[in-house]
Design a protein around this nucleic acid. Sequence first.
RNA 1: GGAGACGUGCCGGAGCGGCCGAACGGACUUCACUGCUAAUGAAGGGUUCUUGUUAAAGGGAACCGGGGGUUCAAAUCCCCCCGUCUCCGCCA
Length: 423
Amino acid sequence: MIDPVLLRNDPDVVKRSQRARGNDESVVDEALAAESARRSALGEFEQLRASQKVMGERVKAASKEEKPALIAEAQEFAAAVKAADARAKEAEAEFDRIASRIENIVIEGVPAGGEDNFVTLRTVGEVPEFDFEPRDHLELGELLGAIDMERGAKVSGARFYFLRGVGARLEIALMNMALDLAMRNDFTPLITPTLVKPEIMGGTGFLGEHADEVYHLKDQDLYLTGTSEVALAGYHSDEILNLERGPVRYAGWSTCYRSEAGSHGKDTRGILRVHQFNKLEMFVYTDPANAEAEHDRLVSWQEEMLQALGLSYRVIDVAAGDLGSSAARKFDIEAWVPTQGTYRELTSTSNCTTFQSRRLQTRFRTETGKTAPVATLNGTLATTRWIVAILETHQNADGSVTVPEALRPYLGGLEVLSPVEGT
RNA sequence: GGAGACGUGCCGGAGCGGCCGAACGGACUUCACUGCUAAUGAAGGGUUCUUGUUAAAGGGAACCGGGGGUUCAAAUCCCCCCGUCUCCGCCA
């Protein structure tokens, strides 16, 4: 939800943001009109209600003889109050409907345009060269007895898989490595629910344009989360946080579910795009004034992970039109995937400013003692998908994979993943 | 699965349909007092919207788990939902 005060005082800023995203800007004027309609409807109701209260006092104080007449009068008045209340509520709902179509205000400096208009901020690490024909992650995963797509499909269908042996260990190792890094930086680990109520799913903005990519359990009316961001954002809903000691940081560990509707035929091979995976997600609640600095910190922790894993990557500033509705800015880190000859997204970190918290009613106390919406930020610290880049980047001619040094302690000192006999 | 109890502010805990945004206690903040701490005394507080203003002060409305209803008037009565707890059963 955007800031209604900003909408009222500075509609041009909102329009400019809508334009940068390639969104409809007429909705801004619609929202403005709905806002003033809402306020006048509310004013009418409040005035009537105040008079009704006065009337109630008179009824109470009246003598037996006066009472019937007064009550008759009050009865009529009550109907008017009720009608005004209904109008005010309707006007409020109408404003919410319109305002919710406005996406978060894009931060100054975010490149305009769509998917292809991102700006590369930096490229880090050597692109790996091989003096042999590199195998792709699935071929390697099968050689190592680490990834089993066939049986995944047998049990659960396309885009499902088993991680076994060193594959399973690799994922757990990655998660633990990420968790350690998070804990060194003041994050509280949190294992989150992966089924959430509609209002939480809606509040985090995932039931907007992307509603069809979300699994929904109809009978229970619960949603399977595509990221722990959902539960982490809902964690402090309707609360006033104490941010005096700095940002509140959580590292959420959860399995993520995505229906991948609309991506049929895309990345069908291996575990690059799957319905279920694990992820360690950073989530931060902070004073909006510190949000951009925190955003940079999230990126630097992500880079720390990728560098420790010896991956080659680039950091991109995602263009306005490619941002989620809650994000004011988003940095993606894409790692080089040798057999694809291109960079693929391994992490994504968004600064949602106060957009998410406004809807979820998460506030903090400012220096003056007033409450104000907090800023929320989120970012990936490790996911199953990283296995793709790790296997391919560190592979050897014989199909074995050298374990990056930083990961070895999490694999019981294992230095090389070696091919195994039939599975 | 069966039976019951409960859900009030930061916490505990009262609350008769109008005098209840809500007693009382604790915590908290400020002030006073006391070498310090503690103790004591006094005062003060919630949230949201709205109006107002450069800003404020001030005014108004809403909020007692959520949503409906009855009533001139609802924390209080009725219905539905959600949550918590206790007992019994069942399964680990």
